[in-house]
Simulated assay, not measured.
Amino acid sequence: MNQPQPLSQPLSPLQPRPDLIGLVPRAYAALNTLHTEVLQASREAGPEAGLLTLVRLRCSQLNASSYCVEQYTADARALGESEARLRALAGWRESGDLFTPRERAALALAETVTLTASAAAAGPSGPASSLTPAEAACIGWTATVANAYNRVALASRITSTVPVPAPGAAVLPAQPDSAPVPVPGG
């Protein structure tokens, strides 16, 4: 058996990465099917679309997936999420009453699923009774699927589509009725 040889030099962050979607489309189709199943289960169990979108966005922030952060931020805006809450999401634990106990429980669960060992060691941060067992399961699965999409985007170097403004240019706020950017499985 051939053993992998250690790299003589670390991989460059600019080195091309494989197109996971294009090279293994059936695996990506299976991920999309899982996403569809989780959406259906969530419709039946009750966590609303806005809460699930916050979960997806928080997972994407934790995974540093700029493409997915962009997509889920656009989705949240389209669902009527406030700019103040979107800005505060990364620091939701320190945001006072900005997030409900139910949202805090969902975000804590999303962090546990995303960060595994470090989040689990920190313990729960919201009352589990804020979510029904079925809602918690759907939120756990939503986080799992979001994490998978994040990793596909990161591994394939799918990057943000936000144009970089010229130095000194005015940056306009996002329009609430703007079309969201398509994301793999989004």
Rank of each mutant, 00 (worst) to 15 (best):
P4K: 09
P6F: 10
P6E: 09
S8K: 14
Q9G: 00
L11H: 02
S12D: 11
Q15K: 05
P16V: 03
P16I: 01
D19S: 03
L20F: 09
I21H: 00
G22D: 03
P25W: 06
P25G: 10
R26F: 08
A27H: 02
Y28C: 02
A29R: 08
N32G: 01
T36K: 10
T36F: 03
V38Q: 05
V38C: 06
V38T: 06
Q40E: 07
A41L: 13
E44P: 00
A45R: 12
G46P: 01
G46Y: 05
P47A: 11
P47E: 12
P47N: 09
P47H: 10
P47T: 07
P47F: 06
G50A: 08
L52N: 00
L52F: 01
L52G: 00
T53N: 04
L54F: 13
L54Q: 03
L54Y: 11
V55L: 04
C59N: 04
S60A: 15
S60W: 07
S60Y: 07
S60C: 08
Q61P: 02
L62N: 07
N63Q: 13
S65R: 07
S66I: 02
S66W: 12
Y67D: 03
C68F: 01
C68Q: 00
C68A: 01
V69T: 15
V69F: 10
E70V: 05
A76M: 10
A76K: 04
A76G: 10
R77G: 04
A78E: 04
L79A: 08
G80Q: 00
E81I: 00
S82M: 03
R87K: 14
A88G: 03
A88Q: 08
L89K: 11
L89Y: 11
L89M: 13
A90V: 15
W92L: 11
R93T: 14
R93N: 09
E94S: 13
S95Q: 13
D97C: 01
D97E: 15
L98A: 15
L98W: 07
F99S: 06
F99T: 05
A105H: 11
A108Y: 07
L109V: 08
A110M: 12
E111K: 07
E111G: 10
T112Y: 05
T114S: 11
A119N: 03
A121K: 15
G123T: 10
P127V: 06
A128W: 14
A128R: 15
A128L: 13
S130V: 04
L131G: 05
T132M: 12
P133S: 09
P133T: 08
E135M: 00
A136W: 08
C138D: 09
C138Q: 14
C138P: 06
T142I: 00
T142P: 01
A143T: 08
T144C: 12
A146E: 07
Y149P: 01
N150P: 09
R151A: 07
R151S: 04
A153D: 11
L154A: 14
A155C: 11
R157W: 10
R157S: 15
T159A: 15
T159Y: 09
S160G: 06
T161D: 13
T161R: 15
T161V: 11
P165A: 02
P165T: 02
P167Y: 04
P167H: 06
G168Q: 11
A170E: 11
V171D: 00
V171W: 05
L172S: 13
L172Q: 14
A174I: 06
D177V: 04
D177A: 13
D177I: 00
S178I: 03
S178L: 13
S178F: 07
P180R: 12
G185R: 09
G185S: 10
